[in-house]
Amino acid sequence: MIVRIMGEGQVKLADSHFAELNKLDDELLAEMENGDGPGFRHTLHALLDKVRALGTPLPDDSLEPSELILPAPDATLEEVRTMLSGDGLIPG
């Protein structure tokens, strides 16, 4: 799956990693629902760091369609809230 981190670029990520990423996504969703700004910021950074660590960066000139778009590391709680589906940032 091709994942875009807004403001950074794209990474190719194996589907096998999504169970691990969904745990962080669930934490992020709970922190957003509770208005936990510091927890939200910490978990968002952990989620993005995990995507970067597990994924393979695509070249900057690559024009692959992104199947999943994640917010930038400095995104606010409200900005991320507008990106959410019922399942959080990561479907499943």
Rank of each mutant, 00 (worst) to 15 (best):
P91N: 02
D25M: 02
L21E: 06
E78Q: 08
P71V: 14
A46Q: 13
E33M: 11
G37L: 15
P38C: 06
E33R: 13
G92R: 15
Q10V: 02
L28N: 04
G86K: 12
A53E: 11
L21A: 08
D74H: 12
L28Q: 06
D61G: 11
L54Y: 05
T43G: 03
R4M: 02
L58N: 11
T82D: 08
L28G: 07
L13I: 11
A14G: 11
P38S: 07
M6T: 12
L28M: 11
D74G: 08
D74F: 07
G86V: 09
I5W: 00
M1R: 14
A53F: 07
L21D: 06
E79M: 08
I2N: 03
T76G: 14
P38G: 10
D49L: 11
V11Y: 05
E8Q: 15
L63S: 15
E64F: 04
L63T: 15
G9E: 01
G9I: 00
D15M: 13
P91C: 03
V3I: 10
T43E: 00
M6C: 12
H17S: 09
M1S: 08
F18H: 13
L58Y: 09
L21H: 03
A14V: 00
D26V: 14
P38Q: 07
P59Q: 09
G37E: 15
L54E: 06
L54A: 15
S85L: 05
